[in-house]
Amino acid sequence: MVSRRSFIKAGAALSLGSIFSASALAEQLKVKMSQGQLMPTKGPIDKSAALPTNDVTNAKHYRPEARMGLGGLAAGNGFNTISSDTEILTMLNAAWDAGIRHYDTSPFYGLSLSERRFGDLLRNKKREDFVLSSKVGRLLTPSAEPLENSWHWADHSPFHYKYDYSASGTRRSIEDTLQRIGVASLDIVYIHDLSPQNSDMGEDWLKYFDQAAKGAIPELTKMRDEGIIKGWGFGVNTPHAVYKALDMSDPDICLLALQYSILDHKEALNKTFPMLDKRGISAVIGAPLNGGFLTGRNRFNYSPKIPAPMQQKYNAISEVATKHGIDIKTAALQFAEAPSTVASIVPGARTAEQINANVASMKVTIPDAFWSELKAKNLIEQNAPV
């Protein structure tokens, strides 16, 4: 459904200089409506099936038991989509009721908004009943002035942020997170957004990495050894920091966002995963649906610009999925969860309907012939686990 605010914004944009036609307005509103629709889950669903789990008996490093979790970007009003506290709490309760027990958030998501909203659910649960991860690298400070150009956050909390990967900044960030969520501990802490892809950093990411190497990395290692946290690693959109850290530290688990999906997985499969496997480190896959693109949203990863090759591959895989009686979202979620390196996937959601659809997708029986046809048509890597 198109919100009144969206309608007004669309109309205002079209009135500027009369450079768009009425048909353009209709098309823009059509896109906004499509972004609010839900891709139906197709295929035979075993409603009695449990969500997949890990055997953690002989794990070298900490690995969560649940192989399906929930990412917290949307709970921070990500992609400039405004959700009410009530809508997000309804979504979170639906996730809990569906059996999801792995929750990932960050101070950056909505500038504390996601953490606070996650706390509305989790502070009322027994701490041993769920896995919780958050991130360090940005310290928030209150401000009466809204932060302009604040990435994708709509109606975010009244905070500014600064980068701080020092030991003291890391401990301060964790303490702030615990207070915002209202829990006594975190299971996993990720060093966040150390990447040349981070537009705030660019090539300066190496300077921040050096700060983390002297501060956050030894501090998190110490906290793990003291039993304050169970594991730590990197939460990044590109693998540069992971590659750089493996030779000088001992992370447990890394959150790889935008790096392993049914559309784009070659480097992670053939380079990143083998490097992690060699050290017994697991991966959590963020954005397995490419920021909603694989559910029909008009964006790819975190951008409205959709690369032509990705659109072509989407169309081709969708055609094969339809032939075999399933949908591309279902195939994408099961594909991202399949590798043994992967400990969990954490797709985001902002509504209970999205949660239920994602959970249903994990219980669909996908025919082997579907995967065979994708490989025969070179739509996925030949060595990709399915």
Rank of each mutant, 00 (worst) to 15 (best):
P367R: 10
K126L: 08
D46E: 15
S34W: 11
E175S: 07
G215R: 01
H324F: 13
N315T: 12
E219Y: 01
L256K: 03
K32Y: 12
F20W: 14
T81G: 11
D210Q: 15
N358W: 04
M310A: 15
Q382H: 12
A212I: 09
H160K: 11
H61W: 11
S83C: 09
N301V: 10
A216M: 10
P107R: 02
V56Y: 08
A287L: 05
G17P: 14
E203T: 10
V284S: 00
I19H: 15
W151S: 08
R180D: 11
P251F: 01
L140H: 05
A184Q: 13
D327Q: 07
A22S: 12
L121E: 00
Y161E: 13
G227K: 01
H152M: 14
R350D: 05
I228C: 02
G169T: 10
K47V: 08
A167T: 04
R297C: 08
W151E: 06
G137P: 08
A360R: 05
L89Q: 05
L246H: 01
S112K: 11
F335R: 06
L194D: 00
P142K: 05
A184W: 02
G227C: 03
F20M: 09
A74I: 04
V342Y: 02
I328C: 07
S18G: 10
Y62T: 00
D247G: 12
L122N: 01
N356Y: 07
E175L: 07
H265E: 12
Y260T: 04
S3Y: 14
E203S: 14
T272I: 14
V386H: 10
S18T: 09
V342D: 01
P44K: 12
K162S: 12
L194E: 00
K230A: 08
N80W: 15
S15Q: 13
K363G: 06
R4T: 14
V2F: 02
A241F: 07
T330C: 05
Y103H: 08
S6R: 14
F293D: 02
A257T: 10
R5G: 04
N198A: 10
N301W: 07
A316Q: 15
N270G: 03
P40M: 08
M91E: 09
H156T: 07
L51W: 11
F293P: 01
S303L: 08
L178E: 07
T81H: 14
R117M: 04
G78E: 09
V31N: 05
S168A: 13
A167Q: 01
A24T: 13
K32C: 05
T322M: 09
L121I: 00
Y260W: 07
I366M: 11
T105Y: 06
S150Y: 13
K305Q: 13
V189G: 05
A212E: 04
A352M: 02
Q334A: 04
R297L: 10
P158G: 05
A49L: 14
